[in-house]
């Protein structure tokens, strides 16, 4: 049987003007940027007499990165309100007293937000397929990109839902979700750059780079996505480069299958987060969501 919460969410969101605007803005931005990029490629061809393959490839990666960035911006915005929105609207208690379990409620919310994202992804396919005009990219590559986007979307979505379950207000949940994704994506990379800086200035001894610390980057979805795209356009082996630079001693299975391992880990973490969210949501199980959270939540919400 289909999930009632999922059905309701779809019905409600598709009705709003906001949703239409979202699709329009998303594809609008995507179209403008890819057209600009394509225009650049064609324009340069006037000087070279033929369309440079690398320029088309560049359009492809640009569009893919934009799509990734949009996902990272949109998914938290959608999911952060999922549970806290029901709290603010005072409808959560009614859901909890129904026969739907906490897990179904959480999954319904996740599926609904992924559905939104999926509509966005599919609606952007025409724009993405610009790149096929000049060839060079296989359908298989595109499918891989979509899968990676979906997994990363789920990952970001589970972070959003977890924070939404903890927070009483959507604003709080949104800030926490964006905050933690920023720390995850830029923070982890920032540390690398900082270490590199220390190294190049001979402060401290970093001949082994960050060693095993490199594996923490598996949780950085942006890095993995970069590796995927760069791998497809064949410019360089992104992870090997990264590794020789920051962790020259590390090698082996994980490094070789970085993308797959990272995506699997993201799925695993998503499942854990969602289960945790369901556990917290269930009023009869939530003996005490760790005191720390409670206090942090109160300090944030300040409406006690």
């Amino acid at each position: 049987m289909s999930n009632p919460v999922y059905q309701k969410e779809i019905k409600m969101s598709v009705r709003t003007v906001r949703f239409a605007l979202l699709i329009m803005t998303f594809n609008g931005i995507l179209a403008v940027l890819s057209l600009l990029s394509l225009y650049g490629a064609v324009n340069r061809s006037r000087f070279f007499g033929s369309v440079q393959f690398t320029n088309v490839i560049q359009t492809y990666s640009t569009v893919a990165f934009i799509e990734f960035a949009m996902f990272m911006l949109l998914v938290p915005a959608i999911t952060a309100g999922s549970i806290s929105g029901e709290k603010e609207r005072r409808t959560l208690d009614l859901l909890l007293t129904s026969r739907m379990g906490a897990v179904s409620i959480i999954l319904g919310k996740l599926r609904a937000s992924l559905h939104m994202v999926r509509i966005l992804a599919v609606s952007s396919l025409p724009v993405l397929s610009f790149v096929f005009i000049f060839g060079g990219i296989r359908i298989r590559d595109l499918i891989l990109v979509l899968i990676a986007l979906l997994i990363t979307g789920t990952f970001a979505g589970s972070v959003g839902i977890l924070f939404s379950t903890i927070s009483r207000k959507t604003t709080t949940a949104t800030v926490l979700t964006y905050g933690s994704l920023i720390v995850l994506i830029f923070g982890s990379y920032g540390i690398l750059i900082f270490l590199q800086y220390l190294n190049s200035n001979n402060i401290g001894n970093f001949t082994n780079g960050i060693g095993r610390g490199i594996y923490a980057l598996l949780f950085n979805p942006a890095l993995t996505f970069c590796a995927l795209i760069y791998g497809q356009v064949g410019s360089r082996d992104f992870i090997t480069t990264l590794c020789t630079k920051y962790a020259p001693t590390e090698s082996g299975f994980v490094i070789e299958h970085w993308i797959a391992v990272s995506l699997c880990l993201q799925i695993l973490v998503s499942v854990l987060f969602l289960l945790l969210a369901a556990w917290i949501l269930n009023p009869l199980h939530a003996v005490a969501p760790p005191q720390l959270w409670k206090k942090a939540g109160k300090a944030w919400d300040k409406d006690e």
Partner: peptide
């Protein structure tokens, strides 16, 4: 409940059907 909210863009019958489906 003492305080309850409603979903703003559901029709009354859809509201009823939604809660029916949660059971």
């Amino acid at each position: 409940p003492d305080f309850f909210g409603v979903y703003d863009n559901l029709k009354a019958i859809e509201y009823m059907e939604f809660y029916a489906s949660t059971y």
